[in-house]
Simulated scan of single mutants.
Amino acid sequence: MIRKIRRLAKVINKSSTRKKYYHQPGTAPGTIIVDENSQHPHIILIDYNQINLVHQEIIHPEDCSQYLDTESVSWVDVQGLGNRDILERLGQVFELHPLVLEDVVNMAERPKSEDYEDQLLIIARMVTPTHINEGFHSEQVSFVLGKHYLLTVQEEPEYDCFEGVRMRISKSKGIIRKQGSDYLAYALLDAVIDGFFPVLEIYGERIEELEEEVITNPTPQTLQKIYRIRRELLQLRRAIWPQRNVINSLIRDSSEIISDEVRIYLRDCYDHSIQVIDMVETYRELASGLMDVYLSAVSNKMNEIMKFLTVVSSIFIPLTFLAGIYGMNFNPEKSPFNMPELNAYWGYPLCLGAMAVIAGGLIFFFWRRGWLSNSVKVKD
C-alpha cells in the first residue's frame, strides 16, 4: 500500500507543469527574462479624480509620462510580458531601478515589499478559479506605487480579480475617487486577498465530495484526488503566507507614500489574509485526515472480504472432508477394512443429505453470530 501511494504521488508530481524563471549563474543584476510564449503587453491607463475620468489603451509607453506629474491618480495596468523593448521603455518612463524592473518582469518572486525612496515596490501572488472548477490559476502581480500613480504588471490578462475595482472607479462608487494612489493600491491588494475565498470555497466542496467517496467507495482514483488536493493546498499556503507579512510590513513601516488613513484600511486586509490562512490550514488538516480515513476504509474492506471468504471456506471444509473420504477408491474385497457405506442402497443420498445438514448448520451458526450478514454487505 505504501509503495502504491508513493507511485501515485510521483505520477501527480510529474503530470503538473510549472513555468520556471531563473537566472543562469553569474548573470548580471537587473537582467530581464522574457518568456517567448507570453502575451504581447497591453497598457491600460485609468486616470481619475473626483470629477474627471480617463480610461484608454496606451500604445507607446512614453504617452504615460504626461499623467505621472498631475494631481489626479494614474493607474497604469500592464497586461502581458511578451516584449522586452516595451518593458524597458516603461522602466525608463517610470524611472524604475534596474532591480525593481527585474523583480517586476521575472515571474518567480516571493511576495515582498521594498521601499525605494519615492517609490514602493509590492509583489503579491494572485489566484483565481479555473473554468473547470478544479485547481486554480496562480500568477504574480506587481505594484509600483508612487505619490500620484500606481503601476501594476500582470502576466496573463484573462485571469484578473481587479474588475470590481475598475467598476468602482468608473461608476464612482465608494470613496475610491476621493482618495490617492495609496488607497488604490490597498483596494487592489484587498481584491487579491479576497480572490482566495472563491478558490477555497471550491476546495471545501471538493473535500466534502471526497469524504463521501472515501467512506462509500474508496478507489485508487480517490487516493490520487486526495494527493492532488493536498498538493494544491500547499501551493495556496505558499502563496498567502508571505503576503500576510507583506501587508503587515506596509502597516508597520513608516513609508511616506502610504498615509495613516490607508494603514487603517490595510488592517482589514491583514485580517482577511489571516482568515485565508486559517481556512487553508483547516482544509489541509481535513485532506490529511481523508488520507487516514482512506487507508482505514481500504483496510476494513479487505478485512470484511477476507471474513466472507473465510466463512465460505469454513462451510465447504467439512463437505470436502466427506467427499474426500468417500472418494477413496479402495476395493473392499481385497482390504481387511470394510467401508459398509460404499455398498449401501441409500448411501449416496444419505451422504448428500449429511452434507446439506452440515452446510445448513454452519450457515445458521454464522448467521446467529452476525458474521454472515456483515460479509454479505461487503460483498454487495
Rank of each mutant, 00 (worst) to 15 (best):
K171E: 14
Q50A: 13
R168D: 15
M126S: 06
M279N: 05
G360L: 13
G91V: 03
A356I: 08
A185N: 04
Q243N: 07
Y22A: 14
L352C: 00
G204V: 07
D260E: 15
N245H: 12
I175S: 10
R267W: 04
V104P: 04
V214M: 01
R3G: 11
L151E: 00
I58E: 10
E285W: 06
V214N: 07
S142R: 09
K334Y: 04
R284T: 12
R3Q: 14
K147F: 00
W75E: 13
F365I: 05
K10D: 13
M1P: 11
R238N: 11
F308L: 09
W367A: 08
S172C: 08
N303Q: 07
V76P: 06
N245D: 15
I358Q: 05
I207N: 07
Y22M: 14
I215A: 09
P340M: 03
Q275H: 15
R168K: 13
S172D: 09
S313N: 11
D118G: 08
K379S: 15
I132F: 12
N83L: 04
E155L: 05
E158L: 11
I207D: 12
K307W: 00
D292L: 09
L68G: 09
Q221H: 07
G82C: 01
T27D: 15
F308P: 01
R228C: 02
F316L: 01
V34K: 12
Y345E: 05
E57S: 15
K377E: 06
E156A: 07
P220S: 04
C161S: 11
V199S: 04
E205G: 09
Y149T: 11
L236M: 12
T152C: 10
